[in-house]
Design a binder for these strands. Structure first.
Length: 951
RNA sequence: GCCCCGAUGGUGGAAUGGUAGACACGCAGGACUUAAAAUCCUGUGGCCGAUGAGGCCGUGCGGGUUCGAGUCCCGCUCGGGGCACCA
């Protein structure tokens, strides 16, 4: 008999299910611990070996915390709304709910196989009405809130209406986070119609509707958030994205920019991830100031031109101004002579896609408006230009150009032959802009002689004193576009009356996603929901036809797990007070600027409303690395290239065919392969140890049946490359196959053994034998090979055995605590090697080891535990205690110095105390030589440091 | 361009500033076996030396701090990730 993992794992899977071993209670005398995984999007491809990496790590930690006596919440669910299911629906007509349900069932089956300790009672699915009820509910709260910068929190719209009625908007324009809109007085407000009031209020809402320049993806037929666009292409599918002005829902996440930034400091997240969020928020400090326009009053611009700069110190170096092509003052500033050129340029800029713009950021383009601004200090005339290097979405969409100290302005000035005026000493202005923030100001009137940092402060002071502007902080962070013109998402709880949006009452929630005949836009270009029958309220008002984006459902899911069946609230205050926040969150770093920002924002908003008790949702975050695939390649002979060569060299290349054949594959190391062949991805299941199974390859696809091969040593050798694991590269490794062959415990330990959890690494099953052997060996230590009966012996452990045990306890606990799971797995292997050398099969040693092993290989550990006569699951046992006295046995080289000079080293055991070390050092032969009979004045001993002897 | 992270045997990787290469894979040799699988044992960074004893070199490159550096500091090279006309 041997280790029958199939039987053992099947037994414990059903045991845990039956006994609800991992059910978490909302009331417990134990301390709580909340371990969360980022829930998966259930794609059609099923789980691959990369998915479980994080789940295994979090499961180990959850089980470890249970052993420590914590009440552990470890839930799982599904991020079920998303584009792939809808794309599939468009192609096949199958309802996305059907495919999603099927995919979830498959995921669930695969997850169950791996022995995770999830509390499935708490499962959530974002497409479940019981769940999206609360997504809609939070949206309604966002709609009815505004952000008071002075109070530093969100407040109800009703309070804003009172303020507007009392005093107009002149004060809140400054003190609220809002879209720009005209000033009005209290009397004007009282005379506004309902619609006019709604229009004003829209500028303050945290969920608001506005005409925004959005990322429009024609192929997907929807808008995308900034983090969903990568290099001008959509994150999903890689389709081109355009810029387009559209009426869309947005979330005023920018109101929270500073709090999102400040909150990072106290989080136990990796530095790189915090840095990513900081960059994404992109805070910069500077000043906003106003430039008068020459003849501004006549042109209808008496208010001048507002710009933002981070370098007010360089104000005396301004030589021209630049507006973005979308700037609303372009019409007023363009002189008749320049009208044609300006219009042509604006049109050109408008028609460029995001990708084109990003592709040639180094190309200089622009046009002169014909107008001039006046320098606020010198009165100098500054030509006003338009260029697409100035962005509409940042600052005021206009800049003061300081060619000498900004590389972009410098390039522009050189190209259009505009003046370059140095005001900070340093660098070589003839060659490039001097951008460094150190140096002394020159040519700058009252700033001359000051350092850059002093000059910035001094200039801001002066600007404020003269009423030209004020110090200002800007953020790169944009408001999040929140609507999608798609079917498979949460419907907005919004209807329209007189063209203005209103929220549904809470008792009408959830607003169910309606059925449609097709998942495509209507002929008029309306989103799919416009196809739904009776898509209006009972009173006949039309409902919103957009749906919410993917991040809507994932923003507060961690709260729902605390109280998943609550029909009255997102989460009850009691449940929230008990579980508080996620103690450990495990997931991929690819969510750094998406989900992890939105979710923090969403949580801060709920905190402001008093609905949750902590301001940050995720206290500690571990980013597991990606498991990459090892793709295999076959090399197809490219006849076009090879024929060209044959014409010049009729003798050809040895080994390659000389007669044209249609489909020839050339083995990797045949000469000429690199030049004349194109690599083609081959399904890795057709390749063993880089040797291609020719028959299987021919049968793989109909086109390949007629393949011919050029072999080496009678075999076809494939090439290999490490790439992202993906269906299209045919390099997906499925966990089920591994579990079938080796068992879940082996897969769990092997994935951990591969390397540090945060590191990306290629999947390679070569090493799995080692882990498999370990588990077999562990089983053989505990059970009789012949009978399969428990075989651990009673009796006291020897000192040597205890030493192994306690060393292992220390090591495993330390490693688990610091998420160093790969070294922990090694620790088990070392322990077993040492015990087998000692021929130890004692219960007194293996029982504690089994408890330690249970988070890593839970099925086997439970099996051993039960064989020892324990009735309950191991999850309720307590961790073995580490005893130091058994483990100190190493020695150490102590450097010994006389009068501060190192003279020799002495090897001594590690477990000596300072007094013993001193004694041994002084008693040594070498010391006697140096002391020459003298008595040392002082001996300083610091364990594992130098022993200093003062003569 | 800017920011972050990394570089250690044939491979994955280990090492609170303290014996570099733990553990595992792979490879080589051996035991058991008719044979294979499984299992077990031995060896395995490089060079010199005799296959010994022993010695020298060795953590991407060049410096530095230290009694002592894979680890800390400075300057590079290469690789990975993020941001990118953000004024």
């Amino acid at each position: 008999m041997e280790y029958d993992f199939r039987k053992i794992e099947a037994f414990w899977r059903s045991y845990w299910k039956e006994h609800q071993t991992f059910k978490a209670e909302n009331h417990s005398s134990k301390p709580k611990y909340y371990v969360l995984d980022m829930f998966p999007y259930p794609s059609g491809a099923g789980l691959h070996v990369g998915h479980p990496l994080g789940y295994i790590a979090s499961d180990i930690y959850a089980r470890y915390k249970r052993l420590q006596g914590f009440n552990v919440l470890h839930p799982m669910g599904f991020d079920a709304y998303g584009l792939p299911a809808e794309q599939y629906a468009i192609q096949t007509g199958q309802h996305p709910a059907t495919t999603t349900r099927k995919n979830i069932a498959r995921y669930r089956q695969q997850l169950d196989l791996l022995g995770f300790s999830f509390d499935w009672d708490r499962e959530v699915r974002t497409c479940d009405p019981q769940y999206y009820h609360w997504t809609q509910w939070v949206f309604i709260r966002l709609f009815h809130s505004w952000y008071d910068k002075k109070a530093g929190k969100a407040r109800p719209m009703a309070e804003l209406e009172q303020i507007l009625a009392r005093e107009g908007n002149s004060r809140v324009l400054e003190e609220a986070s809002c879209s720009p809109h005209p000033v009005f007085k209290a009397e004007e407000w009282s005379n506004y119609t309902e619609k006019e009031r709604q229009q004003v209020l829209m500028n303050y809402r945290l969920a608001y509707l506005s005409d925004t320049m959005v990322n429009w993806c024609p192929k997907l037929g929807t808008v995308l958030a900034n983090d969903e666009v990568i290099n001008g292409l959509s994150q999903r599918g890689g389709h081109p994205v355009e810029r387009k002005l559209m009426k869309q829902w947005s979330l005023r996440i920018t109101a929270y920019a500073q709090r999102l930034l400040d909150g990072l400091d106290d989080l136990d997240w990796s530095d790189s991830l915090k840095e990513m969020q900081r960059n994404w928020i992109g805070r910069s400090t500077g000043a906003e100031l106003r430039f008068e326009i020459e003849h501004g009053a006549e042109n209808g611009m008496p208010e001048g031109l507002r710009i933002f700069t981070t370098r007010p110190d360089t104000l005396f170096g301004v030589s021209f101004m630049v507006l973005c092509p979308e700037h609303d003052k372009i019409g007023k500033l363009t002189t008749p002579g320049q009208k044609e050129a300006v219009e042509a340029y604006v049109k050109y800029a408008k028609n460029r896609t995001e990708r084109e713009r990003q592709a040639d950021v180094n190309k200089v383009s622009g046009v002169f408006t014909g107008s001039y601004a006046l320098h606020p200090f010198t009165g100098e005339r500054l030509p006003i230009w338009i260029s697409e290097y100035v962005l509409a979405g940042y600052g005021t969409g206009a800049i003061m150009a300081v060619a000498a100290h900004d590389s972009r302005d410098y390039r522009f000035a050189k190209h259009f032959n505009l003046p370059i005026k140095q005001v900070v000493a340093g660098g070589d202005i003839e060659k490039e802009a001097y951008e460094a923030k150190d140096g002394t100001l020159v040519n700058s009137d009252f700033l001359n002689g000051l350092k850059v940092k002093e000059a910035i402060g001094r200039m801001v002071q002066e600007i404020e004193k003269r009423g030209l502007g004020k110090a200002k902080v800007n953020y790169r962070l944009r408001d999040a576009i929140f609507s999608r013109q798609r079917y498979w998402g949460e419907p907005f709880p919004i209807y329209y009356k007189d063209g203005m949006p209103y929220t549904l009452p809470d008792d009408k929630l959830p607003l169910l996603l309606p059925e449609v005949d097709k998942y495509l836009p209507t002929a008029e270009g309306e989103p799919p929901l416009a196809r739904a029958k009776d898509w209006k309220t009972e009173e006949g008002y039309p409902l919103e036809t957009s749906t919410m984006p993917g991040f809507a459902g994932s923003s507060a899911y961690y709260l729902r797990y605390m109280d998943p069946h609550n029909g009255e609230a997102l989460v009850s205050p009691e449940a929230n007070r008990y579980w508080k926040q996620v103690d450990l969150y495990v997931g991929g770093a690819e969510h750094a600027t998406g989900h992890l920002i939105y979710s923090r924002f969403w949580n801060k908003f709920l905190f402001d409303l008093g609905l949750v008790c902590t301001e940050e949702p995720y206290r500690k975050l571990i980013n597991q690395g990606m498991i990459q695939g090892r793709s295999s390649f076959a090399y197809r002979l490219n006849w076009t290239r090879y024929k060209e060569y044959l014409e010049k060299h009729p003798e050809g290349i040895e080994g390659l065919p000389s007669e044209e054949g249609s489909l020839v594959f050339v083995s990797k190391n045949i000469p000429g392969r690199e030049i004349f062949c194109d690599p083609i991805h081959v399904d890795i299941h057709l390749v063993d140890n880089d040797i291609l199974d020719l028959e299987a390859f021919k049968a793989w696809m109909p086109d390949l049946a007629a393949s011919q091969f050029v072999l080496e040593d009678g075999r076809y050798v494939c090439g290999a490359e490490i790439e992202k694991m993906s269906k299209s590269m045919y390099n997906v490794e499925n966990p089920d196959e591994v579990v079938e062959k080796y068992g879940a415990d082996t897969l769990r330990m092997y994935e951990m053994f591969l390397g540090p959890i945060e590191q990306s690494k290629p999947w390679d099953t070569k090493g799995i034998e080692g882990v498999s052997r370990f588990l077999k060996k562990f089983w053989r230590s505990c059970f009789d090979e012949n009978t399969g009966q428990p075989a651990l012996e009673d009796g006291q452990a020897t000192a040597a055995e205890l030493k192994v045990l306690h060393k292992t306890i220390k090591r495993i606990l330390d490693d688990t605590e610091r998420f160093s799971f790969n070294t922990a797995v090694s620790g088990f292997m070392i322990a077993l090697n040492e015990l087998s050398e000692l021929k130890c099969r004692k219960k007194a040693v293996f029982e504690p080891l089994t408890i330690l092993l249970s988070p890593y290989a839970p099925h086997l550990a439970e099996e051993v535990w039960r064989s020892l006569g324990h009735g309950e699951s191991i999850s309720f046992a307590s961790l073995p205690v580490y005893e130091e006295k058994y483990t100190l046995d190493q020695s150490f080289n102590y450097p010994v110095s006389f009068n501060g000079k190192m003279r020799f080293t002495l090897e001594l055991p590690l477990d000596l105390n300072p007094a013993q070390i001193e004694q041994q050092v002084l008693a040594s032969e070498q010391a006697a030589k140096w002391l020459e009979g003298k008595t040392p004045k002082k001996v300083v001993v610091v364990p594992k440091r130098i022993v200093n002897i003062v003569l």
